[in-house]
Design a protein around this nucleic acid. Sequence first.
DNA 1: CCGTAATATAAACTTATCCTTATATAAGTA
DNA 2: TACTTATATAAGGATAAGTTTATATTACGG
Lengths: 110, 110
Amino acid sequence: MFETFFKALGEPTRLRIVRMLAEQELCVCELEEILQVSQPRISQHLKILKQAGLVSERREGQKRMCKFNQGYYYDVMAKFGQFMQIPLNEIPEFKEEYRRMCDITSSCCK
Amino acid sequence: MFETFFKALGEPTRLRIVRMLAEQELCVCELEEILQVSQPRISQHLKILKQAGLVSERREGQKRMCKFNQGYYYDVMAKFGQFMQIPLNEIPEFKEEYRRMCDITSSCCK
DNA sequence: CCGTAATATAAACTTATCCTTATATAAGTA
DNA sequence: TACTTATATAAGGATAAGTTTATATTACGG
C-alpha cells in the first residue's frame, strides 16, 4: 500500500499531475495542455495514480474530470506517520524481522 | 527532491530498511540478517536511501552504523504538505503551468 | 447514422531498476 | 604481513517503467 502510493508520487510527471489536480479538477485534455505532455502519456500516468488511490474521476459528457483524492492522501500520510512511529513489535508484518532483530547479537558481526 | 525522496520510499526492500532503522541504528550485516537480503543488495539500497537523505552512516571500526534521518524525513514531509496545500501561483516551478491553466478555457475542449 | 472530440489501450522501443555473482577495498586480528 | 570481517563496487542479466506511434472506444453534434 505505501509502496504503490510512494511509487506513484516518485515520478515527475505524476507529481505534476497530482499537484495540478490539488489545485482544481481538470480533464485529460486540459492536463495535456497545461503540462505539455502527450495524451496517452497523461492517460497512462492517470491510471497509475488512480490505482494508487490518489486520483479519481467522474464522467462529464465525453470528458473525464479528474480529481485529487485529498481525503485518501491525508489518510495514507497519517497511516505512514503511524507506521514509522510505533514500536516495531506492534507491526504484524514485521514480526519476523523483530524476532531476528532481538537475537541478532548472537548471529552476526559480534 | 520530492521525486528522489518518494522514489526511495516506493520500493519494498528500502521501505523495510527505513522502518528497521527508525527502530534503531543497525549495520549492514545486521540488516542483511534481519531482512534476509543479500549484502550487495542492502548496500545498493542504502546508497539510494543516503542519496535521498533518508539515511546516514557513521563508521565504527569495520562496521558502518546506519541511522534513519528522522529530522530530514519530517522536514521533507512537512515541505511536501506545504507544496500540496499552497496556491499554485505561489510555486515558482509551476509558473508556466499556472499561466497555461489560466488561459485554458480558450484553447482546449471548449 | 456519420463525423468528430475526448480518452483509452496496445505494440514497440528505450531506458532504468533490481538482483545476482564476482571482485575490490578497508579495517581489525593473529 | 597474512587472514578475516565488513562493506562497496562493477558487470551482467532480467524485469519493469516510461515514452511514442498507431489504433480503438465512447459520447456527443449534426
